[in-house]
Design a binder for these strands. Structure first.
Lengths: 113, 113
DNA sequence: TGAATACTGAGCCATATGGCTAAGTTACCG
DNA sequence: CGGTAACTTAGCCATATGGCTCAGTATTCA
């Protein structure tokens, strides 16, 4: 149960930051250089590079340097890891929905959040 | 699109820990008390409580104390937030697959602006 | 009443995260 | 050859995270 968690830790943690999510969103439209990616952010380049490094280390992107420019490319494999986990959870959760619905219907307890 | 990032930060970060993911997995099967949830983990209770608190603060669970027992319940709403983001990304990524294939097939050095 | 159960709060500690600046290094342009 | 552009490395700093212990508080049970 816990031996696959190492990868998922990084995969999820990479998404727990708006800068990194925005980078992934941008890379969804196609590969881009470091400075292209960094341009929208009010952040020093070394700080931005840490995010790039992290996305690379967790398998979200691959990079390749050509001349003095490093180009980043989205690596969609991690999406599948997440979707696997999500659908697993959803399966567990939905398998008891019948019981839950019966509970809700009989108890009239609605106001959650 | 970016104004929801604050919530997503927490939602994703809550998943970036094997203990918290395991708790969510267990709660998928139905509500449980703190000590029931903590039992599988070799961890002091106050440490475990921090995870519970975090899951609560990020909206993954709700809790309710009855007597001296606190019962935790899964709140599946956050799954939808994640799936929304994921499908958004996947849509962007897949919409350029044709272009990518053409690029690979022609193998021309033109794609960088 | 007294003890055990089930948390809860306070605070310590080591490491990780996410930002910065300053100073390289490497390629490209004129 | 000199200068600029595009990273890259090194190191500093404040805060957050994730663990711990050592008390407390509040119920429940004998």
């Amino acid at each position: 149960m816990a031996q696959y968690s190492g990868e998922l830790d990084g995969v999820f943690h990479a998404l727990a930051d708006p800068t990194r999510r925005a980078v992934l969103g941008r890379l969804g439209a196609g590969p881009a250089s470091i400075s292209e990616l960094a341009a929208p952010f009010d952040m020093a380049l070394p700080s931005f590079m840490k995010h790039i490094r992290y996305l690379q280390d967790t398998g979200w992107i691959t990079t390749r340097k050509t001349g003095r420019v490093r180009v980043c490319t989205l690596e969609p494999k991690s999406f599948e890891d997440i979707e696997t986990w999500l659908s697993e959870q959803r399966r567990i959760w939905e398998s008891r929905t019948d019981r839950l619905e019966q509970f809700v219907m009989t108890s009239q307890d609605d106001a959650s959040r």
